[in-house]
């Protein structure tokens, strides 16, 4: 479903702030893979997701989604294939627009936007049902401005928007990191549900090793712009936090593989 080959990215090349964020990343995801991504700060996790989403062009390498080469496709054109939820709850929704308007925008992802009505009566009914499943009491607040919602509500809404039209690839960039533990658990639970239901190919970055182990069928670890660990199948099922720490030490040759390095 996703093929990343030899992707490299350097920011501010040729200046004192030069930072090589991706040093040749190769990653293949099968249809329906749910991959969790861990790694310390600056390991290149978010950079990898942004490269796939097309926030900026990569320096080298190719990216294809479902067999389509998207390497040179602009961000808004790739959106056709990708659903995204960001770390910052403010980033995924339009605060000054209503809940139903946000959903209607998401429902038209990848389509031509014409002079037809921005939202139809039939859609409203559908959105109401979908919001009911979220169980956040949003189904009666369709015309509320999204800016008035809490961070957790906004993330849950963004998740719904990202998956409203089934994406070929779902990118979750630490989407629960800014939430309190209880809300984070709820949003994660909703994530698990929607990924399972539609059998979505998913890349989820997390800072929480426990979550990385508990969710998905595959786990990758990044270090200094490369994928240094890739565990799937039975190995992933029996993985423990201790294993992960030990493996990290072996792979990177670092003896200081402690929580700090991994959890930032």
């Amino acid at each position: 479903m996703l093929d990343v080959t030899g992707v490299r990215k350097t920011f501010n090349a040729g200046t004192v702030n030069e930072k090589t964020a991706l040093r040749g990343v190769d990653l293949h995801l099968d249809d329906g893979d749910f991959v969790t991504v861990i790694g310390g700060n600056g390991a290149g996790k978010s950079t990898l997701l942004n490269a796939i989403a097309g926030v900026w062009p990569v320096d080298e390498g190719t990216i294809s989604i479902g067999g389509v080469d998207v390497t040179h496709l602009a961000e808004h054109k790739r959106a056709k294939y990708i659903g995204r939820v960001f770390q910052d709850p403010m980033m995924g929704t339009a605060a000054s627009m209503q809940i139903e308007e946000n959903l209607a925008l998401a429902a038209r992802r990848g389509q031509r936007r014409t002079l037809k009505r921005g939202i139809t009566a039939r859609e409203r009914g559908e959105y109401k049902e979908m919001l009911k499943i979220l169980d956040l009491g949003l189904e009666d607040r369709l015309t509320t401005k999204v800016g008035l919602l809490s961070g957790g509500q906004r993330q849950a809404l963004t998740l719904l928007m990202a998956t409203l039209r089934r994406p070929d690839l779902l990118l979750l960039d630490e989407h629960t990191a800014a939430l309190d533990p209880k809300t984070a658990a709820k949003v994660l639970e909703a994530t698990e549900r929607v990924v399972k239901k539609d059998n979505l190919t998913t890349l989820m970055i997390t800072h929480n090793m426990r979550d990385a182990i508990d969710h998905g069928n595959r786990l990758i670890m990044m270090f200094e712009g490369k994928i240094v660990l890739d565990i799937s199948g039975e190995d992933k099922k029996h993985l423990t936090v201790e294993d992960l720490l030990a493996k990290f030490g072996q792979t990177t040759g670092s003896t200081e593989a402690d929580d700090k390095l991994l959890l930032g």
Partner: peptide, 12 residues
């Protein structure tokens, strides 16, 4: 309202 969101939803 939010350029990031707009682009993520496929808006040029």
């Amino acid at each position: 309202s939010n350029g990031n969101m707009a682009r993520a939803q496929g808006i040029n």
